[in-house]
Design a protein around this nucleic acid. Structure first.
Lengths: 113, 113
DNA sequence: TACGTTACCTAGCAACGCTAGGTATTGATC
DNA sequence: GATCAATACCTAGCGTTGCTAGGTAACGTA
């Protein structure tokens, strides 16, 4: 666990990536799948079955707002960060950095005390 | 998944840390718990219930060799990397670096193309 | 008309590792 | 001489995460 608390301590990465993408601009689910695939050079490929449930969960918790729009006859649901979502992103990103720095230190990577 | 294959893509970190610690010198389970806690500045605290099963699994798969010794009346089981364990460590560390680099890139951290 | 793409969705499962217990010995404290 | 903390090992069982594998429907093109 990370600094005392429990959730599997490395989970929540799909959530982190989704929130980070939405920080730049509002996006819809199908678009997020490809954005994450591209942005990570295919190192992280989240299937739709991963992305959609996370989006629904984040909306339910008030971290995202959703807006249905039709473009070219396609119905899309655009998601945008709320204040709560912005805070959540900051928190997750911070945890992630601390954790990877700590593990990187053990692995003997350059750039740590 | 990482570059096409499935296992939860961030799991195996306890395993990675244990193997890395054993790269330096042979250690026993109880010692590993503390070594990892200390080396990560308490950012990663693996309970014994996490460490021992991983050690058993790694030994079963031939990545570690075990040797029982008694020190100060305490019975300890020292583990050491085998060639297979060394290879496994290299593989896990590589995957970890690629993955964290990719995610770090999305998070807009300095030090990526 | 058939196929690939876009775009959404969910049920169900597997695995990882965390919780929470357990045993036994040693050494210090009272 | 009893009690407690620390050392050192162990396992059963559970919860969460997120992956698999499906399904629907509309659009464009061959």
């Amino acid at each position: 666990m990370v600094s005392s608390k429990n959730p599997a301590f490395l989970n929540g990465v799909p959530e982190l990536l989704i929130l980070q993408c939405l920080k730049g601009r509002r996006m819809y689910g199908y678009e997020l799948v490809q954005a994450i695939r591209d942005a990570t050079g295919e190192h992280v490929v989240l299937a739709e079955g991963v992305v959609y449930p996370v989006l629904h969960m984040l909306e339910r918790e008030g971290a995202l707002s959703a807006e249905r729009r039709t473009v070219n006859g396609r119905s899309r649901i655009y998601y945008a960060l709320t204040d709560r979502g912005t805070a959540r992103l900051a928190d997750l990103a911070d945890t992630w950095r601390r954790l990877t720095a700590a593990i990187g230190g053990v692995l003997g990577e350059p750039g740590h005390a």
